[in-house]
Amino acid sequence: MNEIEQFILQQPVDRQERLFALAKLGRSLPNVTECISYNMPCFKLNQKPIFYFAPCKKHIGFYPTPNVITKFQEELSEYKTSKGAVQLPESRELPIALIEKMIAYRVEMIQGEH
C-alpha cells in the first residue's frame, strides 16, 4: 500500500470511493509520480504537480493549478472555485469527464514547458 492509499483509507469510509476515483485518474497517466505534498495526495509529471486533492467538510478540494481553473472557468461555473481550487460538493456526482479534461490540459502545459 502506498502513501496515497494510506491517506485515503484514513478518511471516513463514505468518502473513500470518491477519493479513490480521483487517485485512479492520476494513476492512469503515463510517467506520473505520486506523493503526499502539503498534506494532500499529489500527482506529478516531470516533478511538477498535475493536481492535488483533499477531503474537506462538505466537498472534495481539487487543485489543478490556477491556469487550469482560468482555462475552464466557464465549464466550472456551477462549482465554487478560487484561484487554484475547485470545490466538488459531496452532494453531486464527480464530474469525471471535466476533471479528465482539466488533467489533460495540465499535462499538456507541463509537457510544453520542455
Results as ranks from 00 to 15, higher is better:
F20A: 09
F20P: 05
F20E: 06
L22G: 11
K24H: 13
S28N: 13
L29T: 10
P30I: 07
P30Y: 05
P30S: 04
P30R: 06
N31K: 12
V32Q: 09
V32I: 14
T33W: 06
C35E: 15
C35K: 15
I36W: 09
S37V: 02
S37T: 09
Y38F: 13
N39H: 12
M40W: 06
M40S: 09
M40I: 02
P41N: 03
P41G: 00
F43G: 01
F43V: 02
K44F: 02
Q47E: 15
P49S: 13
I50Y: 00
I50G: 07
Y52K: 04
F53C: 04
F53R: 00
F53K: 03
F53L: 06
P55W: 00
K57P: 08
K58V: 09
I60V: 12
I60P: 08
G61F: 08
F62T: 02
F62C: 06
Y63W: 09
P64M: 10
T65I: 07
V68H: 11
V68T: 15
V68P: 07
V68E: 05
I69A: 07
T70E: 15
K71Q: 15
K71W: 02
Q73G: 02
Q73S: 15
Q73T: 13
E74Y: 04
L76A: 11
L76M: 11
S77Q: 14
S77A: 15
E78D: 15
Y79T: 01
Y79I: 04
K80E: 12
T81P: 10
T81W: 11
S82C: 05
K83L: 05
G84D: 11
G84S: 14
G84L: 10
G84H: 01
A85K: 08
A85I: 01
V86Y: 03
V86T: 04
V86Q: 06
L88E: 00
P89L: 09
P89E: 09
P89Q: 06
P89G: 01
E90I: 14
S91R: 12
S91W: 00
S91Y: 04
R92L: 14
R92H: 10
R92D: 14
L94A: 01
P95Q: 04
P95F: 00
I96M: 10
I96P: 07
A97F: 06
L98T: 00
L98H: 07
I99D: 09
E100F: 06
M102C: 04
M102P: 04
I103Y: 11
A104L: 06
Y105N: 03
Y105K: 03
R106D: 01
V107T: 10
V107H: 01
E108I: 09
E108V: 07
